[in-house]
Design a binder for these strands. Structure first.
Lengths: 195, 195
DNA sequence: GTCTATATTTCGATAGAC
DNA sequence: GTCTATCGAAATATAGAC
C-alpha cells in the first residue's frame, strides 16, 4: 500500500483557484522572492512541479495573485458604493476594506506589491492598481481628491499595523495605536492571528 | 598586470559603514530575500565573501540595516522637535520625514521590514521600531494619540506612492495624488528617480 | 583587511510516466 | 490531470592564501 493518500483529480479551473489561494498566503508570509514554489505546493496539497506547470513560472503565478488582490479591492469598493445602507460612503468603504484585508494573504500580498515598484513585471501592476483605486474613490465614490487621499492614508496605516501584527501585542500603546488606526472592533483580526 | 584595480584598504569601522550603505540600497530595491550578498558586494566595490565575513551572515546584515533605518527616523524626529523655527511641530516632523526618505534605500528598507512582520528576526525590529516612533510622536512631540495616528497614516501613504514611483508617472491623476500625499515640492523625488 | 576558490544547499524548471 | 525524478543555475557560507 502507498503511504500517500490518493490525490483528488480536479478540473483545471478549480485547481488553478486552489493554487492561487495557497499562493496568496505563502507569498504574503514570505514575499515574492522569499516564497518557494514548493511551499506553495505543500499548502495547496500538490507537487511542486505541478505548481510550476500550471502557471508556467513562479513569476507568472505571482502576477496572477497580484492582479487578483487588486481586483478584489475594486470589487469590494464598488459593492460598498452600490450598497447604500444610510451610512456615509467613506464609512462603508472603510468597513469594506477592513473586511477584505482580514484575509491576511491579501493584505500582505498588497504590501509586497507596493514595495516592489522597481520590478519590471510587478511594478506596473502596483502602479496601475493603486491609481485605479484612487480614481474609483474619487470618480465613483465621489470623494474629493483630499478626502480620497486621506482615505488611502488611513488604509496604508491599517496595512502597516496589521502587517506588523501590532493587533496581537499586549503593549497598551500598541492597542491604542491600532484602535485609532482601525476603529474599535479588533476582534476579527485577533481571531485570525490565533489560527 | 592585473585587470583589477588595487582595492582600497579601509579600517574595519569604515568598511562596515560602506557595506551598510550599499546594503540599504540593494535590500531596498530587491527586498531581503530578493537581494543577494553578491549584489551588495558589487555595490560596495568588494568581494562577496568579504560582505558575509564582515557581518557573519546575510540576515545579520539586514538586521543591522533595519536597525539603522529605524534609528535614523528617531534621530530625525528628535532633531525636528528640538529645532523650533516657529513652524508647528507636525509641520517640522513632516518635513524631516520627507527629507529622510528622499533616500530611497531607507524608504524601501522600511517597507520591506513592515511586510515581514512574521519573520522571527525581522518582525520584532519592525514592531519595536514602529511603537517607539509612535511614542516619540505622542510623548516627545506632544501630539495627541489621534494626531499621532493621523501623522503616521500620512507617512504610510507617502511611503506607498514613492515606493510605487508614482512621482515619476506622467499621469495627471498620479500627480494629483502624489501632490496631495506629499505636499507641493516634489522636485527632490523626481531628481532622485533620474539617477 | 581582503581576495580566490569552492563546498553545500536550495530552488525553479523540464522530461516523461501514468 | 498529476506525479517522480532530475538537471542546471544560483546563492550563502567556509577555507585558506596574501
Amino acid at each position: 500500500m502507498s503511504t500517500m493518500e490518493t490525490r483528488q483529480r480536479l478540473p483545471a479551473a478549480e485547481r488553478r483557484e486552489s493554487i492561487l489561494a495557497a499562493a496568496s498566503v505563502v507569498f504574503g508570509e514570505r514575499g515574492y522572492a522569499g516564497a518557494t514554489t514548493d511551499q506553495i505546493a505543500v499548502a495547496a496539497g500538490i507537487s511542486q512541479a505541478y505548481v510550476v506547470r500550471t502557471f508556467g513560472s513562479k513569476e507568472a503565478l505571482f502576477v496572477e495573485v497580484a492582479h487578483r488582490a487588486v481586483g478584489r479591492i475594486e470589487t469590494a469598493f464598488r459593492t460598498a458604493i452600490a450598497t447604500d445602507d444610510g451610512e456615509p460612503v467613506d464609512k462603508r468603504l472603510g468597513q469594506a476594506y477592513l473586511d477584505l484585508i482580514a484575509d491576511r494573504g491579501i493584505l500582505l500580498s498588497l504590501l509586497h506589491i507596493f514595495s516592489l515598484g522597481n520590478d519590471p513585471a510587478i511594478g506596473p501592476i502596483g502602479r496601475d492598481g493603486f491609481l485605479a483605486i484612487y480614481r474609483l474613490l474619487r470618480d465613483e465614490a465621489g470623494l474629493s481628491p483630499e478626502d480620497a487621499s486621506h482615505f488611502l492614508a488611513e488604509g496604508m496605516l491599517i496595512n502597516t499595523v496589521l502587517a506588523l501584527q501590532l493587533h496581537d501585542s499586549d503593549d497598551p500603546d500598541a492597542l491604542e495605536l491600532v484602535t485609532n488606526a482601525c476603529g474599535g472592533d479588533l476582534s476579527r483580526f485577533r481571531a485570525l492571528a490565533a489560527g
